[in-house]
Simulated assay, not measured.
Amino acid sequence: MDVLLVDDPAPHVRRFTLNRPEKRNALSNGLRGQLLAGLEAADADPEVRVTILRGAGGCFSAGYDLGGGTREPLPFATAAGAGQWARHVVEGCFRIWDLAKPVIAQVHGWCLAGGSELATACDLVYVAEDAQIGYPPVRMMSPPDNQFHAWLCGLRPAMEMMLTGDAMDGAEAVRVGFANRAFPAERLEAEVLAIAERIAKIPTDVQQMNKRSVHRAMEIMGLRAAIRAGTEIQALALTTPSSRETFAKIRQNVSEGLSARDRAFGDYRTKS
């Protein structure tokens, strides 16, 4: 089965679908490599003006593939040593950030951990009202690899996310600034496609300047440096006793390890 599906649902619109529904579209290194290659090919294709990223089945993505998918070869080289994984994730996100053409995340269902990092690397994020977006690894492992929360959501919402690991629904994601708009789940695909078609009316040579102007403003305020600095904190967090214990449980049994993390909160996979 192809882990990434590609189609062109409208003129000048390319759409990528994460296609591992049986694993909640867990992000293996193989899938990540195909996605980055596809996005970069679309960026070089003169017929494409905007891309959409979505997930097959019941969710966008529940995060990185802790069942072995991250042990596959990395899709691109990143300096080795302590913190390599976090640096690699952030460099991948900035590869999307630095594309000339706009990328839209279409989010439904679970959008957790690495899935949320992938969505935030996109230029626009549209969510289903009942989507569930969160970063549960803060409970027993570490802060995010890609620490976007304070930049997108502001101090207070970001701090609450970091200190609880709780998920927010689509409406809350819009309220705090994670997403642009929320739609009923049954309307999400049509609404996102309509927005993509509006964006595609603008020629790429103009649109890439529009996109870059917003990014440069954020970078002047320190976004790129702050997110890269966050990778060192993430690497340090992985040396704590709690993090080491959690990963030891995950190596023995992924499902039980994650359930042990969330059982006291009664959410995610432990919700009754």
Rank of each mutant, 00 (worst) to 15 (best):
A217G: 13
P21Y: 03
P136D: 03
V206S: 07
Y268I: 12
A82P: 13
L193S: 00
Y126W: 10
A235Y: 06
A77F: 12
L163E: 04
Y64N: 14
A171H: 05
S61W: 01
D169F: 01
E72R: 06
G154S: 07
A260L: 09
S142W: 12
E186C: 07
I250L: 05
G165N: 05
E47V: 10
F265C: 03
R156F: 08
L258K: 05
P46T: 00
G222Q: 12
L193P: 14
G55K: 11
Q207L: 11
R20N: 00
R187F: 01
E117F: 01
A82M: 03
A190W: 07
L118Q: 08
R263M: 11
D123G: 08
S259K: 15
R224M: 04
S259Y: 09
R14N: 05
H88K: 00
G177I: 15
I195P: 12
A217K: 14
N253E: 12
Q147D: 15
E117Q: 12
A42W: 00
A182C: 01
F16G: 10
A260P: 01
S61K: 06
D169H: 04
C153S: 13
E72T: 02
W97E: 02
P157L: 01
G266I: 07
L236K: 14
P137V: 09
M168D: 01
S28C: 05
M161W: 04
P46H: 00
T231E: 09
L31E: 02
P136C: 06
